[in-house]
Design a protein around this nucleic acid. Structure first.
Lengths: 204, 204
DNA sequence: ATGCCTATATACCGACCGGTATGAATAGCG
DNA sequence: CGCTATTCATACCGGTCGGTATATAGGCAT
């Protein structure tokens, strides 16, 4: 209750690892293996820390996954929010498709999408994990619906096309893209999928 | 080397369960939980048999999954082959989409697609499982490419649309459909996705 | 130097995993 | 009736799971 009260006033022994870097490594393990298949042994090994350190710093496996998911959305899904700023609905779709494609083509990151992997996983233990991922996806969808509603008001849509329908359609393609990417599809094949999707995207 | 040599000449104690019915129950468990999350305990419980009986009748967990996958393709994916008989490429796509939609809407079967679930699962233990599923998917894709090539030769495609591209595109939508179905999407939402896909499907 | 507090490392916990050894039960065959 | 062959039920195997008790090491204030 005194002194400078600096943000870094650790009274005890200082931790010997960078907590953000460790979280980044945990994210990679979850990304490659999914929640359930990522064992504590593999997590701690990749993070370079021991199990008690992990539990002291992150709580437990589920909380660690949540924090890794936060990091994933913040760093890897940034193109999603920026895509909404495209001038037209078609531009938004193109940015989303190309952003997702670029992610799948990244040589340093794992293939597939952490969200897709986690949503498809169905173990009883991972039920709350799946629910959380689905919930976050719903908020992303809502943002896209809102953006497409603006586009519709601007007269960009052909009649009969609702913002909800196009959002669901685009998300389905993005999910298929991530799934095929995680199944060993080549860059050319995924790129072809993006081009085809843009070719069929409704114009006026 | 004698007698009627009837196909049913079991010398020992006869098995007390129907092997096909047990396999059907195993399929449901794999379908709901995925390969890795389906434990032997849950499998044997659902099949109504004990572990040694399962191993005697089916080999091991992986072989059981393969047989369940055979059953799945034979019974649940029959609409895929019949869809290829539609008169036009557009008709093929529509049959595939509506067939997949109907499966997702079935109240007795689990949601999602066993193939999608198994392909997204990424545990090291399940690597051969994933490879097998991807391989079977590739053969389905090849069949669709072949059918679309006929359609292209018949002048059904607009220029620039290749059979490979449309196949990949359609499979992506089907995968998105299964994934959203497995994530709790409503019938109305999935139906909307099918309608949108048909609306954007290229015409001539 | 002495407490105090926190992080570290080792070893361990009960539960469950896939898979199996073992012996009793049940059929056909002589 | 044995004899053999197959299935059944129980109990068990080593290994791994997520999670933790315990004791030591290390930085701060006094």
């Amino acid at each position: 209750m005194n002194s400078v009260c600096s943000p870094s006033a650790p009274k005890g022994r200082p931790r010997e690892f960078d907590i953000d870097e460790a979280l980044g490594q945990a994210l990679l393990v979850f990304w490659r293996n999914g929640y359930e298949a990522a064992s504590m042994t593999e997590l701690t090994s990749a993070m370079g820390i021991t199990k008690p350190s992990l539990y002291a710093a992150f709580g437990n496996k589920e909380q660690l996954f949540h924090k890794a998911l936060d990091l994933y959305e913040r760093e890897k899904l940034a193109y999603m929010t920026s895509a909404l700023e495209a001038p037209t609905a078609r531009g938004v779709a193109e940015r989303l498709l190309r952003g997702s494609l670029e992610m799948q083509m990244s040589t340093c990151d794992p293939k597939g999408c952490l969200g897709v992997i986690s949503a498809a996983t169905c173990g009883a233990e991972a039920e709350p994990i799946k629910a959380e991922v689905v919930k976050r996806r719903a908020s992303s969808e809502a943002a896209l619906v809102k953006r497409f509603a603006e586009a519709q008001a601007a007269g960009e849509f052909p009649e009969g096309m609702t913002p909800e329908a196009l959002t669901r359609f685009l998300f389905a393609i993005l999910q298929g893209l991530a799934l095929q990417g995680g199944s060993g599809a080549t860059c050319a094949e995924l790129s072809q999928l993006v081009e085809t999707s843009m070719a069929v995207w409704p114009t006026q």
